[in-house]
Design a protein around this nucleic acid. Structure first.
Lengths: 224, 224
DNA sequence: GTATTCCTTCGTTGCGCGTCGAAACGTAGT
DNA sequence: ACTACGTTTCGACGCGCAACGAAGGAATAC
């Protein structure tokens, strides 16, 4: 007879392979329809429907009806928990099987609404070298070079600050084992990358593909 | 067909009520025998044995044979993941049932090897007021008042520093919804509290009970 | 209206696995 | 030696639940 919150209920929801696949697909950040999630999980629409009900009922997903489609998405907190489970899982299973698809994933991918992978780590290192960010314990805080950088990048720092969401968050990376930049600033930078067409999302996956010019422009803003 | 680590395997292990109960019992930090865990989970020894095999096999538990007993324990990383699942679960289930036992749990309890609950939050606030710690984003870093405090408390800061473990960690609290102090410093302070007999652990549970004198001495070291 | 697409509900099947009883194994004590 | 205790293995039971086929809403398109 335990006391705290019932942890097994939530874990059981994530514990089913089909549901876990759906959730992982949704870490990409964009809302997906029921059939898309069914394909992602490799099950029939009926089965997916049952799973999606359980997930929304458990508070892991939110649903929005748009015409005859039903869009499901996860919130940032859920994505965070899933990512932390991913690092933990990566630690305890030596399934070192770096496939070709995996390589692209490690290089640059979406983590809910910000960048992750090698590119994200390089970005953090560059921001640290420019003293835009200073790593404080397990998080980042803005440093003396911050104002100049935000001016150069065209990011309105004040507009990001008055949100309820923290400006900087250190999101642990399961492939690099190092924290990268999340929070509203991480999201803003990712938006910037997409807006300027430096990179785009591979269709339906979490992989982010940079164009040669985008890579160059990214390197200018975030020199090594 | 997903890519990253298989998250459902781990989640499935935590997803069973009996196993979750065992894991939560082990968050207390001390190693427990197989039968103790069986009682904790409310199942027979045979069933517990099967569960414990799966948990150790999955890397969530480590086992040490001591005579005819087998002691199981979890490491700090696992405890951390479980705690984060607890906050998450507490958020998404409105089981507001603050029983009498629950009240003691909220007041002061063990979180693997450091204090949690109201007392831990008060401690963090006091340390912040004394400028021993400064909250940086989601973590803590030592502040200008640190040296004086450690001298007064009789904690050898240098001995803590050269461990591989981080000195300060912000451990999120499922009952208070605020971060409290974990890491080697959090553990050292909890050791100090136990050593000086200011408080002791309730038999077998995570509840920490303070003596009146202990409460007073604690209040001297950590004034409001 | 009819057709089409998306999603759900119902009913059913079948596998997985948590559970326990009985018994065997290993260690400790006497 | 024998007894006691903690733990595991084996075997079997049975529930739970994921999965699909078929059919029934619900919303759009024509």
């Amino acid at each position: 007879m335990r006391d705290g919150p019932d942890i097994s209920r939530i874990a059981n929801l994530i514990g089913d392979p089909a549901r876990a696949n759906m959730l992982e697909a949704l870490i990409g950040g964009m809302a997906l329809t029921a059939t898309e999630l069914a394909n992602e999980a490799g099950v029939t629409p009926q089965t997916a429907s049952a799973h999606l009900f359980k997930l929304t009922d458990g508070g892991l997903l939110t649903m929005a009806k748009h015409g005859r489609h039903r869009y499901f998405r996860i919130d940032a907190e859920t994505a965070e928990v899933l990512e932390s489970l991913m690092i933990f899982s990566a630690d305890r299973q030596m399934r070192t099987r770096p496939g070709p698809r995996d390589a692209a994933m490690r290089h640059a991918r979406v983590c809910y609404d910000h960048l992750a992978g090698e590119v994200a780590i390089a970005m953090v290192d560059s921001l640290a070298a420019q003293q835009v960010l200073v790593q404080a314990g397990e998080t980042f805080v803005t440093g003396p070079g911050a104002d100049e950088f935000f001016l150069r990048a065209g990011i309105d720092l004040d507009r990001l600050k008055d949100r309820r969401r923290p400006l900087c968050r250190a999101c642990m990376d399961w492939s690099m084992r190092r924290p990268h930049l999340a929070g509203s600033l991480g999201a803003a930078i990712f938006d910037l990358v997409l807006d300027r067409k430096w990179a785009w999302r591979e269709n339906g996956s979490r992989v982010v593909r940079f164009s040669p010019e985008g890579k160059r422009a990214f390197g200018v803003l975030f020199p090594v």
